[in-house]
Design a protein around this nucleic acid. Structure first.
Lengths: 154, 154
DNA sequence: GAAATTAGTCACGATGCCTGACTGTCAAGT
DNA sequence: ACTTGACAGTCAGGCATCGTGACTAATTTC
C-alpha cells in the first residue's frame, strides 16, 4: 500500500506547513518581546486595523464564533495588546483597537513572516515562489467556495 | 494600514486552505458512511499501513504526543476502524492495524482528496497545479527544517 | 549482569471551541 | 410614533482536544 509518507495529500501538507510556520512565528515573537501571544490570538491580531474593528466583523473575517472572539479579546486586553472602545456609530458595538504594544506585535509578526517569505523566495527562486503564492491564494479561494457551490447544488 | 485582507500572509492562507479541505473531506466522508471520523483521527488514519504501525511510530510521523495517539487509537478501536495487535518483534509494542471499515475509510478519504486535486487541477491548469503541489511540498519540507536549522545555530 | 532506554498506559490538568439564551440597541415597516 | 425583527456582545454551561510526568514491563547497550 502506498502510504502517505510517499505521496502526502494536500490536507497533510497544508497542516504541516501551517504548524511549521506557526512554530517559527511564535518562537521568534517570544524572543522579540512577545512571549504571551498564542496562535489563537491571531484570529484577532492578524485582522485588526489601527482604527479598530468590531468583534462581529472579526468573527466574520476569521470564521470564528463571536463568543470566542470575545474571550480572545478579553485575554488580549489583559495582556495589553488591545483595548475596547465604544463605537460612536452604534451604542451596542465596541471597537477593538490595538495599543502601542499591540501595534508593535503586529509589525513584528509582519516582519517575521516577510523574512520567512524572502527566505522561501531565495530557496525556490523569485518566479517560482511568486507563482506558488499566487496559486495558493487561488486554490484557497476556490476551496473556500466549495461550501457555497455545494449548498447551491442541493 | 494595509490589512491582512488585501495581502494575506502564508500563515493565514495555509490555515484557511487546511480548514476548507477538512470541511469538504469530513462532510463528504460523513455522506459516504463515515460520520464518526474527526480531523484528529487523521493523525492515525492518514499514516497507517495495511500491516499496522506502532503507536510510537505514528507519534513520530505526525508530531503528536504518544499519549494523544493512544487516546485517538482507543476511540478508533471503539468506532471499529482499527484494532491493536501484539507486535511479535517486541512484547512491549502493539501494532495498530486497520479493520475492513478502516480500510474503507482510508480508501474513501484518498478518493475524495484525489477528486479535490483533480478539480483544482482543472481550475489552475495541469502544469500550474503540478508546479504548485511540488512547490508546496518543497516549501513545507524547508519550513519544517527550520527547527533543525535554528537549533544547530544556537 | 547492570544500567539505560523504549513502548505504551495512567492520571491529572490545561487549553480551546461550540451553542443557546439573554439584554440593550438599532433599523425597517406600518 | 409604535411595533417588530435584527444586531452586538456577553453569560453560562458543556464538550473536545492537547500536554506532561510517573509508572511498569520489556528491550537494548555496555
Amino acid at each position: 500500500m502506498d502510504t502517505a509518507q510517499h505521496h502526502p495529500d494536500l490536507g497533510v501538507l497544508t497542516g504541516q506547513l501551517m504548524r511549521a510556520l506557526q512554530n517559527e512565528l511564535f518562537e521568534t515573537l517570544s524572543e522579540q518581546g512577545h512571549p504571551d501571544v498564542r496562535p489563537r490570538h491571531g484570529s484577532v491580531l492578524a485582522f485588526l486595523d489601527a482604527d479598530g474593528v468590531r468583534a462581529t466583523d472579526l468573527a466574520a473575517r476569521t470564521g470564528q464564533h463571536k463568543q470566542i472572539i470575545g474571550t480572545i479579546v478579553d485575554e488580549l486586553v489583559s495582556l495589553g495588546y488591545v483595548r475596547r472602545e465604544p463605537d460612536p456609530a452604534d451604542r451596542r458595538a465596541k471597537r477593538i483597537v490595538p495599543t502601542e504594544h499591540g501595534l508593535d506585535e503586529i509589525a513584528k509578526a509582519r516582519a517575521i513572516l516577510a523574512t520567512i517569505e524572502e527566505r522561501l523566495q531565495r530557496t525556490l527562486g523569485e518566479q517560482r515562489f511568486a507563482a506558488f503564492r499566487e496559486a495558493l491564494q487561488e486554490v484557497t479561494g476556490h476551496q473556500q467556495a466549495w461550501r457555497e457551490t455545494r449548498q447551491s447544488s442541493v
